[in-house]
Amino acid sequence: MRIGSPKETYAADESLFRTRTQWVWFGILLLSLVLYPFMANLYWLYLVCLICINIISATGLNILTGYTGQVSLGQAAFMGVGAYTVAWLDNNASTPFIMNLLAAGAVTTVVGIIAGLPSLRVKGLYLAIATIAASFILQFIFINWESVTRGTRGINIEPPTLFGVEFDNPDTFYWLVVPVTVVMLILAANLFRTRVGRAFIAIRDRDISASVLGINLPLYKLMSFAIASFYAGIAGGFYAYFYGSINPESFPLLLSIFFLAAIIVGGLGTILGSILGAVFMTLTPELLRYGVDVLEPFVHDASALLSPVRTMVFGLLIVGFLLFEPHGLAEIWRRIRRFFHLWPFRN
């Protein structure tokens, strides 16, 4: 336990960052996020934007699966709903992009609540199957509701503009997606300082004692689905704006599994886990490709030879995490922190 940070009020003891050190680190993080675009090239800015979109979606899924214990494989399809909402509004209404994003969140929330209805009856694997079914239904709608989605041809989205600035490139888009991600992460962290977040965790840990304490299980399960799909909707909206075009292939079931893997690798039931997991899952394939490029001059026909190896290494890393660090990257982070708290003394 940490000592040496006395508090005079309960409010201070309940705050998000409890020590000054934490505030300092948070400040340093924000500062480096501000400075980053001036130092990175377009490709690395592109990666950060993509990471942010993935973080938003993974955070939503972590609230639902990691904190509330409701396994969902529909996160990608929910993102699709958000993306198509933005696309439709962009093409058919001249509403500002902030409105479009919020509408994407709202529409996805409603869809998420409906898709979450089976959770009132089933849990675990059965719920996972039910959400897969929901995502197939949504996929079917994306393909066949041609008047709205333009079917398999896909649909184009104009880049968003604000105060005359066009967010059409990663270097401008960065300033849009990064602040929203930071805000959404703080909102998610706040949730778990209150009765709502505690109720979610109670449902995950022991739903029977949760209901003895007066927690309305159906209400809170659906609330969790609603919040998770709101996050997915916002992430999907950003996705649509970021890539400028979407089609039903953009949101396959595999993407839902990608998010599930991200929160497992990152750490179920921690906000930090959603961040680390999304960063890991997005960056590792890129870094492995980088590795292949480095080996190119030394190995004959490296790219053809090493590409399959790259996928295998990625898979092995995920399996490795499940085996050796089931609490995910967040736990490794916590261990490192603990080490430096005690350093140079040993416990």
């Binding site: 209150t194 977040g197 007066g214």
Partner: peptide, 14 residues
């Protein structure tokens, strides 16, 4: 829990 009233919206903004 049952004695409290905070809803999800105000919870997130804290």
């Amino acid at each position: 829990h049952v004695r409290m009233r905070t809803g999800p919206m105000s919870a997130m903004f804290y």
